[in-house]
Design a protein around this nucleic acid. Structure first.
Lengths: 252, 252
DNA sequence: TATCCGCATAAGTACGAACATACTAAGAGG
DNA sequence: CCTCTTAGTATGTTCGTACTTATGCGGATA
């Protein structure tokens, strides 16, 4: 087509950074099959032109998809599509406070369930608290910003004193523990993470579009405050076929 | 201004990108205590000026340290020093049956299989190398010292040049990559870990005394040398019912 | 005294331009 | 036919610049 008209340039909405919109756009193209797995993306310069953004913006978008494991790039060759969203999505690698912060910033947690629960049995053991202690409980799916389907199901157990930091919040786009820190002034001293293999519980499987009992992973985090007190306990369920937990240990 | 001279700007070496040199410089300053944990780094603009690089380069350097967890940034405030990374080897935190898992000395790896293999297909992808590259392959069960039954099955893919470091070794009681470092002088720059849920393959299930197809976890590690070259690739299989991977993120 | 507003600050986003480097493929030469 | 060289391509690095947005501080106001 001749058309120089409106182009296929994106219609940018305000509020969301352009590079994220470009990343989402590319993700959709990949999911839709426009860029099949194993093929090379158009050169950055071409993408920049066709989307009417700078190459720098395209590179930021590609960087996003790269550390999700969707793309890989090689100098002098091109940018290769490694996987699709529903295929190999979440390479999770938040292994620092800041990492969790960034992770929360690029995802959305939708609270669907709220209640007050009492920690008993195995749960109390996992949480590392005395049985009988009460917690404010929230749960719901977590999405990559702009996506249709969630990639993770999240449960949160919050100290009842901190309940008001989430009251009235339906969609969370920041790390919960920063809210806790801000409201209380108390700083999270330590975060204890644990990853283990599981069979997906029913309600999780339903959200993630998997069979109940399918392979999955469960990541739990204990957020410890100044006084060695458990401020928050979070559980995340991931599908086992698309999720892996990654860490990089680098020596100086 | 007095000094147009050498400044305290870095003496850049060629070959390494500047932003990496800046990152290393900042890391050293942090480890050395010039920027204590909990304090704010100078503004990016100041750093850029004093190091005689562009702000963009400083940002790239900071980005590096951010996803290592060393730094965290907040708009309008500054960049905070979160931790120092001198003892990254101590951050191996794997746990089995409640006991702490210590790589180096408390376990024994018994090599039962040796061969030379060619990385192809999914293996090449996982290893992050081009298909066709040859590796020296070793495999066997790993025992807690004195135990009857292994708790883990281990596979190792070694750069053929490094083959002689394991020739003649039947039982390994130290981390293999330290042998590599000692023999070659080349130091491991980076270790990339990945944990995922799996169904146990037959030969693993047999060793671990589980049913084939039972819940398990697979941990892979890529040991990267100076030249971004893959020196060693290791795979460990654990039973899912007794194994979990743990990390602690402490802020101060 | 307490609250609100606005300014300064610092990271985040976005554009443009140029050069460096790794890789591929085509062509020249043996 | 094989090897070496060379030109082209695409990502990587680096500079410059400008604007946006979140935050915090301090002064003015109620």
């Amino acid at each position: 087509m001749s058309g120089q008209g409106p182009e296929n340039g994106l219609a940018f909405e305000k509020g969301t950074p352009r590079y994220l919109q470009v990343a989402q756009h590319l993700q959709k193209q990949i999911d839709g099959g426009s860029y099949p797995v194993g093929t090379l993306l158009p050169p950055e310069a071409d993408l920049a032109e066709s989307l009417a953004v700078s190459r720098h913006t395209v590179r930021q978008a590609i960087a996003q998809l790269r550390d999700r494991g969707v793309l890989s790039a090689r100098k002098g060759v091109g940018t290769r599509v490694e996987s699709r969203e529903d295929d190999w999505r979440a390479r999770f690698g938040a292994n620092s406070r800041g990492g969790l912060f960034d992770f929360a910033r690029t995802t959305e947690l939708h609270f669907e369930t709220r209640s007050t629960v009492e920690a008993r049995g195995a749960l109390a053991v996992d949480m590392g608290v005395r049985p009988g202690r009460k917690f404010h409980y929230l749960a719901g799916p977590r999405y990559y910003a702009g996506d249709e389907k969630p990639f993770c199901v999240n449960e949160v157990y919050l100290d009842p004193r901190l309940r008001d930091v989430v009251d009235g919040i339906d969609v969370l786009r920041v790390a919960l523990f920063t809210l806790v820190e801000n409201k209380t002034g108390e700083r999270v001293k330590e975060i204890q993470q644990e990853v283990r293999a599981i069979y997906l519980p029913d309600f999780v499987a339903h959200h993630l579009d998997r069979e109940p009992g399918a392979l999955g992973m469960r990541m739990t985090r204990r957020y410890i405050g100044s006084g060695s007190r458990l401020l928050e306990y979070a559980v995340q369920y991931y599908p086992g076929d698309t999720f892996s937990y990654q860490t990089t240990l680098s020596s100086t």
